[in-house]
Amino acid sequence: MSLHAAGREPVLRLEGVRKSFGDTEVLRGLDLTVHEGQVVVLIGASGSGKSTLLRCVNLLEVVDDGRITLEGDDVTDPRVDADAVRARMGVVFQAYNLFPHLSVLDNITLAPVRVHKVPKAEATERAMAMLERVGLPEKASARPDDLSGGQQQRVAIARALVNQPRLMLLDEVTSALDPELVGEVLDLLRELKDEGMTMVLNTHEMGFARQVADTVCFLHGGVVHEQGPPAQVLDDPRQERTRRFLARVHA
């Protein structure tokens, strides 16, 4: 963490974030700080609130209490323009969520044209460059349904990246994929990390967490129960809960 200039504003900071659904309190005063260029991997049992955390950051859920700041701007302020906040982040979902009625190219240019008001020609140019980047330039005019799962997920990543987000949120982006397709997506994420993209991601793949994470956070009881570099949290956890979770995952 010494890599990150101490005085710089973190890209993302969560302070005492609480979120309940009815009687179930999912997040119970959770704190998390993500610095520029850092890759934070969230692990935890099913239902521990990993997806909820990402949805709160993206303002798809309204937090009950606490503060979330994006580059110093309080985004939990009710007066904030949620669309403008979301436009600064890229989200990739487990089920890709591509728009089936649009071509691959139109999926990618939709937000640049409609949200960022980029001229159509320039947006197309950027989208093609992005497809090149994810290795799918020949699929520009294809429909999402005609692509493999891995290809769809790479398009979804391109769709998020083309808006030059300050922060990428990735929710189990490989768990809907056949094992042989996981590699192509993980390679892409590793490249993104090397380029300095700030990312928060959920995963059940401890091997991948080990490879890309700067920090691994173990979610339990609605808070970050343990966090640290992957070598420490995954190989030599200090907390009993973390140890038990990892034993179950490895079993």
């Binding site: 993206n58 798809l60 979301r86 436009a87 591509l98 728009f99």
Partner: peptide, 28 residues
């Protein structure tokens, strides 16, 4: 609903999401 979530997460407003993502699929 995941289609709306994807559109909103890209920064599209409610109206834009309806116009460009939900209605084209619904009408078809």
């Amino acid at each position: 609903p995941s289609q709306r979530a994807a559109a909103r997460s890209l920064g599209l407003s409610y109206g834009q999401t309806m116009r460009h993502v939900v209605l084209p699929q619904a009408v078809r």
